[in-house]
Design a protein around this nucleic acid. Structure first.
Length: 333
DNA sequence: CCCGCGTA
DNA sequence: TACGCGGGG
């Protein structure tokens, strides 16, 4: 979600080559989990669930994607959100309201047999509850993938990891990471490159966004890019009505940021938002270790506990644990 | 999302 | 090999 900067940043996206993606990837955990939960669903919007009715969509996504990453030389580290800043409370309340309304509309669409609508509303009603967060972390642990707990926003922490050289890039769909100063952002970080969208197959390639290129291209400093975002609206402030990314860009370049704030957003003090993007709470210490996936415990967890088919899980697991003849992956751990 | 199958 | 489709839990 986050910031509506797409219109001005999209021109700087570039397709990612496989060699761009190797190394340590800081995964925005909430972003990835929402992605899985909203997309891994049946046509009427029902998520994957085990016999006890527990949602398993995210476990499927984590397992298959992590397996692919490890085989492609991508070392994922998942960054989980900590306590959200007070500035975000309005956004959080709004999102809850949107989710609850979507839940109603999902039920209604199902009753009326409106499949397309049902899927759309089901996506919008996705919610990360404790059970999903715990099970996600447990599976990541069994896969040997390190997890980082951000003190505040995961995106800020993930961006800091790239700034400090601990990770090569942030993987997220959101552009907010650029505001937090991530030098390199990768969107659509998938391996298969294909995605089903409204029943059709569309080719989705991973794409890179280099902060430096965005700033150079737009002729902005990072501080000014943040000001543009503030005018449009961020997770931490409401935007000015009628001001889109292009207008905001023009105004900031003309030095009119303050004018717009006083005329259109008189109640907003932009300083706390600016300083949150520039100096967010981050932990700054990342002891990361990738371990070999624990074959038997993963089978127990996914298949015995959550009802996944062993016939599907085992072959993939054998590839990444190096059981059998393949020893090539051992060098990774 | 991801896999695997049938098809051409 | 490439794509569309159905099913996964």
């Amino acid at each position: 979600m986050g910031v509506a900067l797409r219109d001005i940043i999209a021109p700087y996206k570039k397709p990612a080559e496989p060699q761009d993606l190797t190394g340590v990837a800081s995964i925005d955990a909430y972003n990835a989990l929402y992605q899985f939960l909203s997309i891994i669903r049946q046509p009427d919007g029902t998520p994957l669930m085990d016999a006890k009715g527990r949602v398993t969509s995210h476990l499927s996504g984590i397992f298959y994607r992590t397996s692919n990453f490890l085989q492609q030389g991508i070392q994922p580290v998942w960054i989980f959100d900590g306590k959200p800043p007070e500035l975000k409370s309005r956004t959080i309340d709004e999102r809850r309201a949107v989710r609850e309304e979507a839940q109603e509309k999902w039920n209604q669409a199902k009753r009326e047999g409106d499949t397309a609508g049902a899927f759309r509303y089901a996506m919008a009603s996705s919610r990360l509850d404790d059970e999903i967060l715990y099970s996600a972390r447990e599976l990541l642990g069994l896969l040997g993938v390190p997890v980082v707990d951000a003190p505040s926003e995961g995106e800020a922490e993930a961006s800091n990891m790239v700034r400090t050289g601990v990770a090569r890039y942030v993987a997220s769909q959101d552009y907010d990471t650029l505001l937090f100063g991530a030098p390199l952002l990768v969107r659509n970080l998938t391996v298969s490159g294909k995605r089903r969208f409204h029943g059709r197959m569309v080719n989705v390639q991973p794409e890179t966004v280099v902060l430096e290129e965005v700033l150079m291209g737009l002729g902005l400093s990072r501080e000014e890019l943040i000001d543009v975002a503030i005018l449009v609206g961020t997770d931490f402030n409401e935007g000015a009505t009628g001001v889109g990314a292009k207008t905001a860009l023009k105004r900031v370049k003309a030095g009119e940021f303050g004018d717009i704030i006083s005329s259109k957003l008189p109640d907003l003090d932009p300083e706390p938002v600016r300083s949150f993007f520039l100096n967010p709470p981050v932990s700054d210490s990342y002891p990361l270790e990738w371990k070999k996936p624990e074959h038997d415990r993963i089978i127990a967890f996914l298949c015995e506990n959550y009802g996944f088919s062993e016939d599907r899980i085992n072959p993939i697991l054998e590839k990444i644990t190096g059981r059998g003849k393949q020893r090539t992956l051992d060098s990774w751990f």
